[in-house]
Design a protein around this nucleic acid. Structure first.
Lengths: 124, 124
DNA sequence: TTAACTGCAAACCCTTTGCACGGTG
DNA sequence: CACCGTGCAAAGGGTTTGCAGTTAA
């Protein structure tokens, strides 16, 4: 059956709010730490299970970046490209002027380098 | 002490040859499988240790890509950008005409999408 | 002969799963 | 009162480390 019923729990709400409050892609551990303020005994397994559920429902977007575990963000914040601060290890979505490679970074950050990653298929 | 002496072993040579023969970034498991032809009892731990050693020596370049474990390639093959075949899960380095976003892909592959990943620092 | 290297197995870390209990609808 | 969700702990998968024996130089 595809018609699974999703329930509202204080854990799920805390997780959702934590991600929205972050305003940038965050990982499971960070989500746990943030949400623990609301739900002290929150388990990491619950965070993982809710992440999976919310991604399936389309309430959460996975953000995968090179050499790192995936992070997650609220869909509304989604922009096509990413900016990674190598000093603070925070990730931001950005909406660059791709045509001339002058991406508009978050205030206060400076661009050091970028990487283009192309995806495709073997069509033979 | 920085002056560690590196020795030549049949395992290390087999690993090195396997990576060079692949001609594209390969992961630890794939390296193990390839090198096992030469050294049957080769252990995965030896592969990991040699990868680390060779990266430190500059004989091997790590290639990190979104949502995947790192792969490794011989430095000579290094090109600025990557192409990922989502059908065969192989990775190639490419030298695209970045200015107009017409990367020259490996023969037979078609581009589906690309992602720009910017790296930088917080300078405040 | 020395000390780097190897294979094996155990340890680790992060993520997933099994289970009994608790809470939503 | 069904049954989904939770916390805990155990299980997985991939990577690293400890150890005793092996081997390059």
């Amino acid at each position: 059956m595809n018609s699974k019923i999703f329930r509202e729990t204080k854990q799920r709400n805390a997780i959702k709010r934590a991600i929205e409050a972050a305003g940038r892609p965050v990982g499971p551990k960070e989500i746990l730490d943030l949400a623990c303020g609301e739900v002290p005994n929150l388990g990491i397994a619950t965070v993982y299970r809710n992440i999976k559920t919310m991604v399936e429902k389309g309430e959460l977007d996975p953000v995968e970046l090179p050499g790192q575990a995936p992070r997650y963000q609220a869909p509304a914040e989604k922009k096509p490209h990413l900016f990674i601060c190598e000093k603070t290890d925070r990730v931001f979505t950005i909406d660059p002027k791709a045509a001339d490679f002058k991406p508009s970074l978050p205030e206060g950050f400076v661009l050091e380098r970028f990487q283009i990653i192309c995806y495709g298929e073997y069509k033979k």
